[in-house]
Design a protein around this nucleic acid. Sequence first.
DNA 1: TCTGGGGTCCTAGGACCC
DNA 2: TCTGGGGTCCTAGGACCC
Length: 442
Amino acid sequence: MYALVDCNNFYASCERVFAPQLEGKPVVVLSNNDGCLISRSQEAKDLGLKMGEPYHLVRPLLEQHRVQVFSSNYALYGDMSRRVVQVLSGLAGGVDVYSIDEAFLDFGGMNLLEPDLLTYGQRVHETVLQHTGIPTCVGIAPTKTLAKLANRLAPKTGPCRTVLLATPADWEPALARVPVGIIWGVGRRYARKLNEMGIMTGLELAQLPEHWLRRHLGGVVGQRLWRELHGQPCLEWNPTEWDDDQLQPGLASRHSVTCTRSFGRPQQQEAVLAEAVATFATKAAEKLRRYGMATHLVTVILGTDRFAPAAGPKTHTAVISLATSTNDTTILIKAALQGLRQLRRSDVAYNRAGVLLTGLEPEGQAQLGLFSNTAPDHQRSQQLMQAMDTLNTRFGRQLVRSAATGNAKNAVGQPQSPVWAGRSAHRSPCYTTGWDDMWQVR
DNA sequence: TCTGGGGTCCTAGGACCC
DNA sequence: TCTGGGGTCCTAGGACCC
């Protein structure tokens, strides 16, 4: 048996933990650049506000109902997520962290009988709430896909937040109640296709032959879905070990690392784009080192206005291949700037840029190139990166950095946001990760 | 004026290898 | 007339997830 624990309205709930006066009031959190609504409290959902809606379109409605608006604060949400995982790790035989706000628990081998499963799910909800202030729902079933369904059906209010679907007699009526698009793995495209064929509910989907799903829903992906809906576990279990020394979940492996951002306004100048791209390469390299990985493929991304009526591609990419795998910021910046020079057209203004790193491998395993990056160079590079990471972790993220990332100052010489930076007008403090933002208890 | 960011997996086709 | 079989790696595109 698996349990899926999903944090309710996670980002909005994080903000509320530190602003309890907002309990019971509508709250929304915006995406980067204050672009779209990406999290809504229940009260905000009840006002008819939709996920992903552009902020500028719903602003009048938000003001009319005095909705509290936050820019996204990923330092806060990431740390709250870490705390939730810490609690969950103490409550189950195994944890599989699926995203920033949800995790599967392994309830097998815990000697829980059926009525106890429900009680234990409740205990998980109560413990997470007590230790972190974050409300959750719990869904329990023999496969991940059915646990997802159980979670969806769990009440968001009231004392009981757990649903158990233990046998076909439990999950078949549940499947019959939900539209097919609710099922995990059925997105908008498949839902429309299925509806056009007259398949409207989860149960109608489950009752089709297995080979039909293989044929029409993405090959083996569809076949796995069929089996999962019949109680046969097909999706992998990826355990996340809690690291007691680091007080954080163990790092999962990665196949790619990206850092992309929309600009506050379109940018045309080479110098500005170069600072932005160097900054994204720096962030991506830091992430790579945190994961203990190295890359040999650097992709630079430039994007024009996605909503412009003009035809043609809105995203352009250039790939730079490195002779040797590395996670050295200076090398990755050089490669990214080379890609930028290849890509950039002087008569175009860009709304977005980014850096994508692929071809990842564990850093120790990286082969030395035949003609480059001799061993002593490699060692010096590692020492330099380690020194920079140590200083930046201890004294603040941007303390030591490459000059290529820019050095914007205001009229009195204070550092200020670069010209390409996006909007973030409603950012909350970093309550749990910044010394200056910490709460004081008198 | 104004619309996010970061991932995953699968398939098909082509180049290349023995 | 008549040209194998079994792989890997890469890319692009399409679907999905949060």
